[in-house]
Nucleic acid binder design. Structure first.
Lengths: 200, 200
DNA sequence: TTATGCAGATGACAATTGTCATAACTATCT
DNA sequence: AGATAGTTATGACAATTGTCATCTGCATAA
């Protein structure tokens, strides 16, 4: 019996997946979490064989959870299940050494089969991601990302400088550099591009 | 037997919902669509009793579909099933006279029951939406919305003025007015607020 | 007819933003 | 020690943005 845990904040999907997987004879859904924090603590206490992690969840993202599981030397295998084929997300998942990265756009029928294959030691990656991704690296460094994120929240260069204890000019330099790398003509365009690629 | 059609672009969710509903003795999923256009043509040809429509789909949104069904005098009952509790969406759905508006954040178990109740002539609205929404009207008029949308794509005031055959100053006036209404201190914040409320 | 209101335009002003050249200070590598 | 690279800072400049008061048509209602 494969014991699995589902972490997904959208209740309808979480419930439907749990039901669907429970119909399989060899799979048992032992727990469900609606945010990253809960997922982490349930995985620790329940020790499931596999966990299905959404990325964009409250409190902690699925990627955060995956990284912390590695740190703790957990034996639970991780399958990321997300809407986003964003290169940034995928790269981070690969670095965190997850066993699977599936898209919510993929077929339902394949999910159970993917779980079984992961149990056998295979890696399961949505075919959309296998080609044409690795080349698109995140061009932004940590500072640029941090500053652009704050800017994306509507913060002003001045506010950001106060928050990060940097000078006004430095903040603007970083934004300028980021926009240059993203080939964007202003903050708004830059934010669009970066968000869309999962670089923020 | 209640014949239903599901329109939802996310394949995993669509598949899971179809399976879940097909398990019910009195419900039969007669069709699935992955965009609004397909939904419309399948509803016309299959004449299901109920259709489940996602809002944010390619080609045509679920709201577009609902509105066109009314126009055509279709007898198929409509349940909107969406992630978004945005007031703008909800208002539009109410105006289109849909029979249900459920959130994907709601419980899976209730879905089949909601469908049965809709068949009996009830209206099904997610409880989150019943209170505290109607008052939050979209404060932006058509022009302001149009201009802020273009701005959200990274367009400059100058570019927008050329696109809409308005003067540079007029465009900035509209943006200023929109920001004032949204209580935002700059474009970026304004865009965030408006998008989050479904006002764009 | 006057009044009222709306869509659009103009001009002026200050603040913010985007760009660039340059420099100081570290830390690291050779 | 010298070379190199990364981080932070400055100053200067132009362009863009945000705000306001004011003005022109134009339609429509009193």
């Amino acid at each position: 019996m494969i014991r699995i845990l589902i972490a997904e904040d959208q209740r309808m999907l979480r419930g439907a997946l749990a039901l669907l997987l429970d119909l399989e004879d060899d799979i048992e859904v032992v727990g469900q979490a609606c945010d990253g924090e809960e997922a982490l603590s349930l995985i620790t206490s329940l020790q499931p064989d596999v966990c299905l992690l959404d990325i964009e969840m409250p409190v902690k993202t699925g990627l955060d959870v995956a990284e912390q599981l590695i740190e703790r030397g957990s034996t639970t295998r991780v399958i990321i299940l997300t809407t986003f084929a964003r290169t940034g997300y995928f790269e981070r998942a690969v670095k965190a050494n997850v066993q699977g990265y599936l898209l919510k756009d993929g077929p339902t029928e394949q999910l159970a089969e993917s779980i079984r294959r992961v149990m056998k030691g295979h890696r399961e990656i949505s075919p959309e991601l296998i080609f044409g991704t690795i080349k698109e690296e995140n061009p932004l460094n940590a500072r640029e990302r941090e500053i652009l994120s704050l800017s994306a929240q509507g913060k002003t260069a001045n506010e950001i400088s106060a928050m990060l204890h940097l000078s006004y000019g430095t903040v603007r330099n970083y934004i300028s550099e980021a926009l240059n790398k993203l080939d964007a003509k202003n903050r708004i365009e830059g934010i669009r591009v970066a968000e869309q690629k999962g670089w923020l």
